[in-house]
Amino acid sequence: MKVLEMKHLTRKFGDFIAVDNVTLAIDEGEIFGFLGTNGAGKSTTINMIAGLLHHTKGEIRILGKDVTKNKKFAKSHIGMVPQDIAIYEDLTAYENIQFFAGLYGLRGQKLKEQVEEALKFVGLSDKAKSFPKTFSGGMKRRLNIACAIAHRPKLIIMDEPTVGIDPQSRNYILSSVRKLNEMGCTIIYTSHYMEEVEEICSRIAIIDHGKIIAEGTKEQLKAIITNTKDIWIGINSTDTLDLSQLKLINGVKEVKVEEDVIKINSSADVNNLNTIIQYFIAAGIEIRTVEEQAPNLDTVFLTLTGRNLRD
């Protein structure tokens, strides 16, 4: 079953189109990654799904029902982890989760159990009675997540849940995302961190300037760019290097110099490694290392958008 369907979803702020004709469907049980640079339109999309923003055009369906007509139904099945931490500093960790879970109608023993479960889930059981003031950034992020999962939603939306935290908290969050997924939750996950998305997501969409420019599994995305390869050559000195000569070699598309590593992007179907190495020998430049890079999502992103994910 489709947990979420978006059709021709568009959002304008005045004349500015923040989300442009997005069509996506997410199946039950997926961890769906949403990748994009700053201002790409990730949060705007997510806020529309969560009912925090109107859409200008298109439609959104949660569990088959249109959100505009079934606002309460849609919201009650979503757990939203906002990009900005949204918790009450004057309430304890326990009270924070209790309050938000209560808004979904939970009361009494059931509420108590599920709050405790959520606390345990994010590893804050021993901090139940502490106030967020005393928490580290990572602990606040974890509480931010707990507040969104205590009511056991079908769809959990996480907007950059790992921004600005220590590696330990980050690993904790990543493994809890996996655990939530194993328990049957469908998850939408946006991030700036390619490694995270690559590690946990079953499917990924890349959004740029409000448009979805690629969508699929990791393998499908990498296949888009397997027509090129990256050759990295480490040398001792760049003094006598002539980039224009290198660019003339058959198949070479782009050459970049990063300190003492020459990064060559070349067509995958041309066998030119010998010619390249011969150029360095002829120029009297000593080669330290030669590496051929397998395509990763970073290169996919770079190829598709012409930018690095975190610039």
Partner: peptide, 14 residues
């Protein structure tokens, strides 16, 4: 300002 308002609105509360 504390963003809790927006989280509130993502729950069934209007």
């Amino acid at each position: 300002e504390g963003r809790t308002y927006f989280r509130l609105l993502s729950t069934p509360i209007d």
